[in-house]
Design a protein around this nucleic acid. Structure first.
Length: 549
RNA sequence: GCCCUUGUAGUUCAAUGGAUAGAACAGCUCCGUCCUAAGGAGUAGAUGUAGGUUCGAUUCCUACCGAGGGCACCA
């Protein structure tokens, strides 16, 4: 990593100049013409040293010229110092990029990170919102793994409550089969309609109470069968989406009972009774136990924390990925949890990562259940558009979800389906497929050690060749992964991969790897580096890497 | 009413307080004896409004306008 070397060199130079406390960055310049790294240190130090920024830059420049891997430095603009990597440094990077350790950082080494995501309402058909949470959570889990953390994947399905009661009512009333996922979904929709129209409101509430109490064997059996069917279906869909298995699943039926007890035990210290309900007064007041003494979603979160922290007492970071409408809710609930469990939460991060809403424009999906587009029908629809390739469809879907910052709405037109060209998952997958195809064919070619054509390019002159641009893009992959993990923002990886794929496609159009049955060692190493980087990048996003398309 | 998030090309998204605001789709031009055209090259097009802080603001602050969400027994 040349960047950290440059940072250290700058810090030493600052010390010489008596300006140690200057806050500066070494970053990738927005334009490659400005070099491979740039720093604003002179601009930041100028004020403290009471000198002209360009003079400070010139002074620093002379002290930085011999940084590792740097061929040339340059003072530019208002006082930026630009660094150009040497040919040897790029060659070293290309070699490193083909190794297993590429893109594997250690910024979270030794940390235990819990990522809770997907967490559907069992009985309800899996909708697009569940899919988005699953996609984002999986990528965050993989980013932390790539950064050295010990990651535990957690799923927190809702297996008790009004939703389940509605489903049980529908199963019984309409004599539907709880072991058939389609009939189960239908039962929920019918139950929901009946509840909304108050046709069966009281019956369903009675079922709900009986399920909590376990007092009706027939209803409880329907519930258990439905849960088993629903979970099985969820796990199958996770496999299709490429989610690694969950390490643990916690259920609301467990967290509710626990939460109820913990909240009751903390009345007076953390919670108060108000109008018969047990509440927490934070930024605003939230009800943890309703006036019947039953746990609300809030109390269940308290119970869930107890379950999580008992299973993983040494965790460092606990991440919950859910819809962004719950942002305020979690702010207050985490605050309450910290008061209930000061010892267990001290020094630990409790984070909520909001998922986007998927806003549908006009248009219909071919199969619907109730008024909701199911995850499966969406996947089927996109697979059809992807010429029958589910791996390409999963790539397209995940790319669309992950390409923007989390929590920002995704506008989606089901008629147009998802983009399969340009800035899209298949675009990156296709670049990888091309690289793999080249590597397969290169096995039969003769190897030559001829130097790459860009070697003697005089800096600052002529347009850099496609292969030079490609090498210079490769350098930044580890930084991008580290930043994405630190910010919980997979979209940085998406943006980077698209740029790398574009640079590779330009190279592919401009230059040939195999000429008259021979390949150059340099060029082959470059293709191997690109192949490996694209693969690692897609892997961190949870997007499949196809062999051919 | 209070709180949170958000406003960038016709559209969908980028841009840790920095240099000429990047892509893609749609539009208009080109590229097919050649490693997979789900590709490549070119062209045109954007920071909601008004102030402020700063050497420098899409980014930070204030107000206004627009959009989404939340605010007591749902999850």
């Amino acid at each position: 990593m040349f960047r950290s070397g440059i940072e250290t060199a700058i810090q030493n130079a600052l010390k010489d100049m008596g300006a140690e406390d200057v806050v500066f960055v070494v970053e990738r310049p927005s334009d490659m013409a400005h070099g491979d790294y740039a720093t604003n240190v002179a601009l930041a130090a100028a004020k403290i040293l009471k000198k002209n920024p360009r003079d400070v830059a010139a002074e620093l420049q002379s002290k930085l010229e011999n940084s590792a891997g740097v061929e040339k430095t340059q003072v530019a603009g208002a006082g930026f110092i630009n660094f150009y990597l040497s040919h040897d440094a790029l060659t070293t990077t290309v070699k490193e990029a083909a190794e297993d350790s590429w893109g594997k950082g250690n910024t979270y080494a030794g940390k235990k990170v819990l990522v809770e995501y997907t967490s559907p309402n069992l009985f309800k058909p899996l909708h697009i919102g569940n899919l988005i949470g699953n996609i984002l959570g999986e990528s965050i889990a993989r980013l932390f793994e790539a950064s050295g953390a010990d990651v535990k994947r957690l799923n927190y399905p809702s297996d008790i409550g009004l939703t389940i009661a509605k489903g049980v009512w529908g199963l019984q009333k309409h004599n539907l089969n709880p072991e058939n996922i389609a009939e189960l979904g239908k039962a929920y929709v019918l139950g929901n309609e009946a509840y909304e129209s108050s046709e069966a409101k009281e019956q369903i509430e009675e079922i709900n109470r009986a399920l909590y109490a376990g007092s009706n064997a027939e209803w409880s059996t329907l519930r258990e069968k439905g849960i088993a069917t629903s979970l099985k279906h969820l796990h199958e869909l996770c496999v299709r989406l490429g989610t690694k298995g969950f390490d643990k699943e916690f259920f609301e039926s467990q967290s509710g009972v626990l939460g109820q007890k913990i909240v009751s035990d903390n009345i007076g210290s953390v919670f108060e009774v108000s109008d018969g309900a047990t509440v927490y007064h934070g930024e605003h007041t939230r009800v943890f136990l309703n006036s019947q003494g039953l746990p609300t979603y809030e109390a269940k979160e308290v119970g869930l924390f107890e379950l999580k922290s008992n299973a993983y007492p040494n965790f460092d970071i606990s991440i919950t990925v859910t819809g962004k409408e719950q942002t305020d809710f979690f702010r207050i609930v985490f605050e309450a949890i910290r008061k209930v469990f000061p010892g267990k939460t001290n020094g630990k991060d409790l984070l909520h990562v909001p998922t986007s809403f998927l806003k549908l424009t006009t248009g219909k999906m071919s199969s619907r259940l109730g008024n909701v587009i199911t995850g499966e029908s969406l996947l089927a629809e996109v697979t059809e558009a992807a010429r029958g390739r589910e791996d390409v469809a999963v790539g397209a879907l995940k790319y669309t979800v992950l390409k923007q910052g989390s929590g920002k709405d995704i506008v989606f037109d089901p008629e147009k389906s998802l983009s399969l060209e340009g800035d899209s998952g298949p675009y990156v997958q296709y670049a990888l497929v091309r690289a793999r195809s080249l590597l397969r064919q290169a096995k039969d070619a003769r190897m030559e050690n001829a130097a790459d054509g860009g070697r003697s390019r005089p800096l600052g002159q002529a347009l850099p060749s496609a292969s030079i641009l490609l090498r210079r893009s490769l350098v930044h992959f580890p930084d991008v992964v580290a930043r994405a993990a630190g910010e919980l923002e997979p979209h940085h990886v998406v943006t980077y991969l698209t740029e790398l794929a574009a640079a590779f496609n330009s190279w592919y159009a401009a230059e040939r790897l195999i000429v008259d049955g021979t390949v150059s060692a340099d060029a082959l190493a470059l293709v191997q580096a690109v192949e490996h980087t694209l693969h690692c990048g897609l892997d961190v996003l949870g997007i499949p890497s196809p062999e051919e398309m």
